[in-house]
């Protein structure tokens, strides 16, 4: 736990610092030279980070590994692609449809997996992803194995004018806004009633029940709200790439989601964003070639899970605790007598 649970009012200073950091973050592409690679890399990082937050919510607050979030990711991509190509509707419409459909799909999958835990939960969600992949791959109405091409630029009418996201430079503000929205949502969720009860269920299901928490309802609710996060990332990804195909179900995205969340540590607000950034930067700018990248990614994932299951932040925390304990035992502390305890 890095943040404490009860609501802490944001101090003025903190608000100013956060606002300043957000401002700087927005101009990151320019700070890195303003090239199209800078824009596309940062847009991709923002986009994939949003994708990862859906998985993060489920993993960090239910303690379950969802292998089915590629379904929601693909729902976003397919809805944006098919509706904008065949119906010619704007981005708001496709976004709303994305949210609606992903919530419906998550409700269904959530109800199916309501009684499952851990390994079985992962397996069932994975099965859902496999089945959906097969459907997308073989159903010509959604593009079949070739997918859908010719997705137009993202159009977002804002009353008096329409924002058009065609180039990477134009898509960056949208990706950035989506990321901010997601961070805000997840931060609120962490402090919400649902967030805290989910954490109770995760930490001690029996105890949560004894306090009146309906485990199943909480699990279903968390799973359902995680879906549109990942789905909206898929929605924007469709416009960025202008092509959507069954590759959205590929392990590439699944591994990215899980690694990015686990790498830095669970239940850390910026964890998935940092994890995604590290992975994308390694792949795009410090690449050692496809085979080596996969070896390294697999090795890092395995090493983190085996040695520091709490992620890199967990490692830092561990070191700090050890240091603290050392300094503490050197000083006074820490023997309690029974007397003291009864007062």
């Amino acid at each position: 736990m890095t943040d404490s649970l009860p609501h802490r009012p944001l101090s003025m200073l903190r608000a100013v610092v956060v606002a300043a950091l957000i401002g700087v973050a927005f101009f990151l592409p320019q700070l890195f030279g303003g090239s199209s690679v800078a824009y596309s890399t940062l847009t991709t990082i923002a986009l994939f980070a949003v994708m990862c937050y859906g998985v993060d919510v489920v993993l960090s607050y239910l303690g379950e590994v969802s292998l089915g979030h590629t379904v929601f990711w693909a729902i976003g991509g397919y809805v944006a692609a098919l509706m904008s190509v065949h119906l010619g509707v704007n981005g708001w419409v496709t976004a709303l449809a994305t949210i609606g459909l992903s919530v419906a799909a998550a409700t269904f999958l959530g109800l199916v997996t309501l009684r499952t835990r851990e390994f079985v939960f992962s397996l069932v969600t994975y099965a859902a992803a496999v089945v959906t992949h097969e459907i997308a791959f073989n159903w010509d109405a959604v593009g079949g194995s070739d997918g859908t091409v010719g997705i137009p630029a993202l159009k977002l009418p804002l009353g008096f004018f329409t924002y058009v996201g065609g180039t990477q430079e134009e898509l960056w503000p949208i990706a950035f806004a989506l990321l901010l929205l997601t961070l805000f949502f997840v931060a609120r969720f962490r402090r919400s009633r649902l967030g805290t009860t989910a954490l109770m269920v995760h930490m001690n299901p029996a105890l949560a029940t004894s306090l009146g928490v309906d485990q199943r309802r909480v699990r279903l609710a968390v799973f359902v709200i995680s879906a549109p996060i990942t789905a909206l990332a898929g929605w924007l990804y469709a416009y960025q790439r202008a092509y959507v195909g069954p590759d959205m179900f590929e392990a590439y995205f699944l591994v990215m989601m899980l690694t990015a969340v686990v790498l830095v540590g669970r239940r850390i607000l910026l964890g998935p964003l940092l994890g995604t950034a590290v992975l994308i930067i390694q792949q795009n700018l410090l690449s050692l070639g496809g085979d080596w990248n996969k070896v390294i990614l697999g090795f890092v994932l395995a090493a983190v899970l085996i040695f520091w299951p709490a992620g890199l932040m967990g490692l830092v925390d561990h070191m700090r605790q050890r240091w603290l304990r050392k300094t503490r035992t050197n000083g006074r502390e820490n023997k309690r007598s029974y007397m003291e305890e009864v007062q």
Partner: peptide, 15 residues
């Protein structure tokens, strides 16, 4: 190297 992965291919195209 596109690694036979569309997402990677897109990054390479941008490069």
């Amino acid at each position: 190297d596109d690694e036979s992965t569309p997402a990677v291919g897109v990054s390479r195209a941008n490069e």
